[in-house]
Simulated scan of single mutants.
Amino acid sequence: MIKVLENPFYYLENFQQVLTWIGDRYDDLLTADERALITAFPALPQASRALFVRMVMRKGTVFRASKLVYAEIGSTHEAARPLAAIGLIEEDPALDLEQLFDLLQKPEIGKIFQLPAHQRQLRKADQLEALRARYEGQHRFSIWYEDAGDHCYRNLTQELCDRLRLIFFGNYHQDWTEFVLSDLGIYQYEKVDFSPAARGFRSRRDIDDFLALHRCHERYLEGEPVDEVIRDLPPCPEDNEWLRSRRDQAVTFQQSSPAP
């Protein structure tokens, strides 16, 4: 039976533990923006920190306040203000039509664009195609939907947080939800102390090479020619056997696998 978590901010504490661990272990390899987040984050109000982590753990980067309602956080808009003040999120971001559609329900689309009855029954994808030629460019959410009675935010740090997740886990397969499953007792981890010499990433180049390997893998999955992807694989240093083996595995996999 899954136990009920008694601490409503368990996810925030886990996220802070990750930041502290990375700061202690990898400070010499961090970029200025990574180090700035780790330094500034603990000083934010608790509700703001919790809202930020909730956004980081979700898919996508643009959210409506009405979809970020959590009892332990309280007012989403008030919690968002300190985050916007230091540039972690953007309030009322400019969106193109496709980004706007991702946030809207079909009744809202019909209302905003005053669709005739026959278009209101179409699938959202068909509605988007019908409107695309008439609505080019970007506008702020409040301009698109003046009487929404809602706020909109864009997480400006998702890529940065993904890099921190990579540094912590050493891969892109594991994500922030693993902490939830661990706290619920679904995943069990053994605590092991690692010496600084046992770091998977020994230099900033190692991190950048891993990111480059990941981007090449995504390009392959998107159908780019194998020869072009392999050509852009980073060389990876010979003295990092772990990283070098990942590169060699990527080459072998892409050469032996049929095109996606």
Rank of each mutant, 00 (worst) to 15 (best):
A198T: 11
P93M: 02
F201C: 03
E146S: 13
G170D: 01
D206V: 01
E159D: 12
E146A: 15
H151D: 13
D162E: 15
F169C: 00
A133P: 01
L184E: 13
N171F: 03
R163L: 04
I167D: 01
I143P: 05
L128C: 08
G110S: 08
Q105V: 08
D183H: 13
I112W: 01
T177C: 12
E146P: 09
H139N: 10
S182V: 11
Q158I: 09
H139T: 02
P196E: 02
L184F: 15
H139R: 15
D183T: 03
K124F: 05
E136R: 15
H173Q: 15
R154G: 07
F168L: 02
Q119S: 08
R120M: 12
V180K: 11
Q188W: 07
P93S: 03
D147F: 01
R205W: 05
Q105C: 04
D183E: 15
F210V: 01
C216Q: 14
F101H: 07
S182M: 13
D162Q: 15
E108T: 09
W144Q: 05
Q119E: 15
K106Q: 14
L100E: 08
L213M: 10
G137L: 08
P116C: 07
P93Y: 07
I143F: 11
G170N: 00
N171Y: 02
F179E: 06
F113V: 07
L103P: 07
R120K: 12
E98F: 05
Y145T: 01
D92V: 09
H118E: 14
I109A: 03
I112Y: 02
I112N: 00
E108P: 05
F141I: 08
E146F: 00
R140N: 09
Y189T: 03
Q188N: 10
A133L: 12
L184V: 10
P116M: 06
E178R: 13
I167N: 02
E98I: 02
H118F: 15
I109P: 04
D175E: 12
E136Q: 15
R165H: 05
F201W: 05
R205T: 14
Q127N: 07
K124C: 06
R134L: 10
Q121T: 12
R120F: 01
L95T: 10
T157I: 09
A212F: 01
T157C: 12
D92A: 11
R219D: 10
Y220G: 00
F141M: 10
S182G: 08
Q114N: 12
L181Y: 15
Q119W: 10
A94T: 06
R154W: 06
A133I: 06
A117M: 07
E218S: 07
I207P: 01
I207H: 03
R202F: 00
V180P: 00
D175W: 12
R163F: 02
A198L: 11
P116E: 12
Q105S: 05
D92H: 08
I186S: 10
Y172D: 13
C216I: 07
Y189K: 08
R199N: 05
E146V: 05
F179R: 07
L115H: 04
H118S: 13
P196K: 04
L156D: 06
Y220E: 09
L160Q: 01
R215K: 11
A197E: 14
R154T: 07
K191E: 12
K124G: 00
E108M: 03
S195W: 10
D162K: 13
L100C: 07
E98V: 06
